[in-house]
Design a protein around this nucleic acid. Structure first.
Lengths: 209, 209
DNA sequence: AATATAAGCGGGGTAAAGTCCGTTTAATAT
DNA sequence: ATATTAAACGGACTTTACCCCGCTTATATT
């Protein structure tokens, strides 16, 4: 008759078979992608390959895009750790403008390296794939304010700069002629630097006594 | 036996019945959207509503997204005309920085007003929906170079600024809390102004003799 | 007016995402 | 060890975009 003493604990850890099956599914997905590319990863084929039912696939990942999001997640976490506690200028310690430039360079490279998965991880519904909160917009906002406390509309600017940074690699420079990822990386990185350095006052040595 | 004397004329104008059916389909789509929203516009339902076969719908518009692209097209053309030959500062004649600010304001409003259709017009494949060429990136590039001929990487900057301008309204400020379109429009317009005016040297009266 | 032909048409067929619900089972309480 | 139950499972079912291809017709040519 007693109710559990801690009725509000987290919703009870994932069952062991569920965790095992998730790994099976992710492994199967990785193999299928390596063999035939993302397009051939259908929910039916993935379920069969992993020896599970289709319902299980949807229960685990919600949507097709969810599978690809899960595949990127580990790398994304590593990336965020470098940003939050790695060496400067990407990590804390450097001048905010330098950190913004470094973040852009790293993010562009990350997205271009993961572009196939990242594109497949975009939901056909509303927003871009974010792990609960939008780390990029958040981080950009913080650095923008640090670089210039008097900046108007930091929220809006953070949103726009996030789009400027992440849109082109995800769409792989949607416009005009095709470019190699190498050329794209260089072009975008340099453009980002220009954008950031012009947008924010350079902190020259003369500024600090 | 003779082949046509002008074998390379354009591929022969659209047949009258085809044009008529296209209008019927667009009318039907508009009605269905007004009544039940874009999601209920399925290819089967649209075909039936217009009294045509499903194959005809695909022949006319290629994909589902193509229908929504066609619905926006007229408005998009009007917009481009205002930009190319309307009154300044949106049209030609004003200072490039002013034109960039004006273009951003107009584009943000346009995309927010059309956001439902515009989102539905995005293909689940690669690029964002563009009418053959990417007018926004092109226009931004021209104005950027006019405003500052020494700007490095105008191509990359144009691509990034296009993403900064069009991404947020299309994704409707994907991140954080929901905002009303009104608030969104104001926030983005002001942010765009800040971005452009900081990015480019203000043309002060003193600069011109 | 008759003919030729490329364009258009229709609707059944396929593939794939996502839903539903009855059955099974891991984890926990007794 | 047994009972309990919430979670997990599986696979049939539904929905929808998109393909295919034999038939029809508008238009141009003679």
């Amino acid at each position: 008759m007693d109710r559990p003493l801690v009725p509000f604990g987290r919703p009870r850890a994932e069952r062991a078979d569920a965790a095992r099956n998730r790994e099976h599914l992710l492994d199967a997905a990785r193999l299928m992608i390596a063999e035939h590319g993302v397009d051939k990863v259908t929910m039916d084929a993935l379920a069969e390959r992993a020896g599970l039912g289709k319902g299980t696939v949807f229960r685990r990942f919600g949507t097709r895009a969810g599978i690809f999001r899960a595949l990127i997640e580990a790398d994304e976490r590593r990336f965020q750790e470098l940003v939050l506690s790695g060496p400067p200028p990407l990590g804390p310690g450097a001048d905010p403008v330098e950190r913004l430039v470094a973040y852009g360079r790293a993010r562009i490279r990350f997205l271009l390296e993961h572009r196939t998965l990242a594109r497949a991880a975009i939901e056909r519904g509303q927003p871009l794939p974010e792990g609960e909160v939008d780390m990029t917009a958040l981080h950009l906002r913080v650095l923008l304010v640090q670089a210039d406390p008097d900046l108007g509309e930091p929220d809006g600017l953070a949103i726009m700069l996030k789009a400027a940074l992440e849109g082109p690699p995800l769409m792989f420079l949607a416009s005009d002629e095709p470019r190699s990822p190498r050329e794209a990386e260089h072009l975008l990185t340099e453009s980002w630097r220009t954008l950031v350095e012009r947008l924010l006052p350079q902190q020259t040595p003369a500024d600090r006594p």
